[in-house]
Design a binder for these strands. Structure first.
Lengths: 368, 368
DNA sequence: GTGAAAGTTGAATCAGGGA
DNA sequence: GTCCCTGATTCAACTTTCA
């Protein structure tokens, strides 16, 4: 015991995926050593039968063995155990994020409070493209809930207020986030073309979580690693990750996925620090959604200037940093500049104004 | 006791506000008598006094956590008591809505599941004009959470699917609702111009709740009535209400408020009905009435299959015999099939769905 | 090639009545 | 309680097919 308490952060298995039960693995790690925990525990869905769409095709339900619990009591026991193990390894100023649906989130939230965590916000992930309710018997289940909590009510948790403000058109980030579900090319498939994991989360969600509540170099642990979205985004953002996953199949997929990831440039990882009022730009949303990769090069419409995209939706050109409008104005020596029409990005062989991406995002968000 | 159990719904104190503790008042009401409960339970008073103690550096962490657990336990006891009393008076097919924030909603949700309620949806009220976070230490708390639950997993709860779809421009209603907070003329003020109640809910929220989950004439009970938003909207929508409120000041405000409310016209209270509500018509009836001759040929909507009508209202196609639904399912290799929309008959030069004949029969059945 | 049309899919506690 | 039958029900995004 005395030996274990002497372990330091340098002994952490950084940037690796541990095999086995998350409680056992966390108990082997040194206490007070991890900056952030992101957890996507099983939801304990209780499905009674098959569900068909109006066209008679069958809905591929989450009926995996790892989501089965015998009772609420059994699920609560499970929650209390992993939450306690997670809290022990968190630094005093560390924090945790847990995601869930109405099936489990109330139980997890209560267990979290009972364990001594201090809730900072509950954050709603509003899905822009959820699965509809096929039988017309309830409301479309169009969101999931995340709880963000500090280790204790005295923890000095990390919150990059200005960075999130920059991501949100220059106004404070709210507790409801509109993001699409994970699909298309981002969705990992096996050799047969089937989804590699039934509940893969979108990278845009983890991007916002990590930009909000970690600093470069921080250690982020995910006890239910799955196919490694947390690790992929952490690596890209220059954070260390530790994954724990029971299923070998998922570990293998995650390993290959993360291996292919490249970290963003050091410049791009610097987020806005200043308290100056940010102009109202939605540019950060393009970055979050992956419409423009962090580190991408933008070119001015007149072809005379170039700039690089940073993680919080600001630009850098030489030693000039700021919003798309600010950087454009400085480079042109002009009092002001509309960055949306000034900057272009490379699309196929052409340079296209970034405003087309904004229109794309608006089209996705407007039905809300 | 025996007398109390014999009470019928006619003995309910309809459209009145009861004074006193909600648990005691609910225990006096007959069981299985109320259609819907809407509850906005307190949380600030319950938690703040006990959790936010003056900053005392002498208190060590263990005591602190023990303290927290104690106050959470007290709140849980309170929740379990009123949820149990509420569940007793609910009709078997009744339902409940509870609204709260991250301070209390996880505890209430877990208690609700433990009490045997069956969660149908969690609904996010996304505030279009929330109060900003002044200190910039967290995300703007821009939503509250409602839980919608049936009395049990076998309860046949009311859900006016088509009405909510109509409210949402023709697409099914989602679990996130964007509505402004209560302000302006709707916000009740006292003589001095101060708000009469700190957490008055907007009528638009209750409007959607009641349109979604009640029918005209239903009984809606609110155990934390406050200034009576639930009663005001219920009266306007032609539902009965029962309010319970401890504070005389709030009761007086609510009384005056509801007195001034006028019910909408009966016509206006009618909402779009689901097809399920229409009377059932047997296919054989069409044959009996001569709307389709025995031996008539039917064709599938996609044109790929044909069948012949038999005297008993069944179909035959090759060697497949059975109902319009069964034969359609077999021919399509589908788990099920709606024969009414699958089969067409020859009318003049066109092939028309047999459903038009069913509508014809329905029109003859109901003189309305 | 290009665009229109058709097909696929996503953490789902998803029916009601009569015999 | 069970079994059986009727018949009501989908949105957005991406992928594939076909004209």
């Amino acid at each position: 015991m005395a030996i274990q308490q002497k372990k330091t952060e340098t002994e952490l298995p950084l940037d690796t995926i541990l095999a086995g039960d998350c409680v056992a693995r966390m108990q082997e790690l040194p206490e007070n050593s991890v900056d952030l925990i992101f957890a996507d525990p099983p939801y304990n869905l209780q499905l009674k039968g098959e569900l068909h769409r109006p066209d008679n095709s069958k809905v591929d339900a989450v009926d995996d063995h790892w989501d089965q619990f015998n009772s609420f009591a059994a699920y609560d026991r499970f929650s209390r155990e992993w939450l306690a193990a997670a809290r022990r390894i968190l630094k005093p100023d560390g924090a945790i994020w847990v995601i869930g649906s109405y099936h489990n989130i109330f139980r997890v939230g209560a267990a979290l409070q009972d364990a001594g965590y201090w809730i900072l916000n509950d954050v709603v992930w509003r899905k822009s493209n959820p699965m509809p309710n096929f039988r017309g018997k309830r409301l479309t289940n169009a969101h999931e809930t995340m709880i963000w909590a500090a280790k204790s009510d005295s923890g000095k948790y990390t919150f990059n207020y200005e960075a999130l403000k920059a991501l949100n058109e220059g106004v404070q980030m709210r507790s409801d986030w509109v993001l699409p579900i994970c699909s298309g090319g981002e969705r990992l498939k096996d050799a047969a073309g089937n989804k590699a994991h039934p509940t893969q989360k979108p990278e845009s969600l983890l991007h916002r979580v990590l930009v909000a509540s970690t600093k470069p170099g921080d250690v982020v642990l995910d006890p239910f690693f799955g196919t490694g979205t947390t690790g992929a985004v952490a690596k890209r953002l220059g954070r260390h990750f530790i994954g724990i996953e029971r299923e070998e199949e998922y570990r293998a997929v995650a390993e290959a996925r993360i291996e292919a990831i490249r970290r963003y440039d050091r410049d791009a990882l610097q987020v806005t620090q200043s308290k100056r009022a940010e102009p109202r730009v939605a540019f950060g949303t393009l970055v979050e959604r992956g419409l423009l990769p962090v580190g991408a090069e933008l070119r001015s419409l007149n072809g005379r200037h170039r700039a690089k995209v940073r993680a919080d939706g600001t630009l850098i050109a030489h030693d000039t940093k700021g919003s798309i409008h600010q950087v454009g104005a400085v480079l042109e020596g002009a009092p002001s500049c509309n960055g949306w029409t000034y900057w272009t990005f490379r699309k196929g062989g052409d340079w296209v104004p970034i405003d087309v991406l904004r229109q794309q995002v608006r089209a996705e968000m407007s039905p809300a």
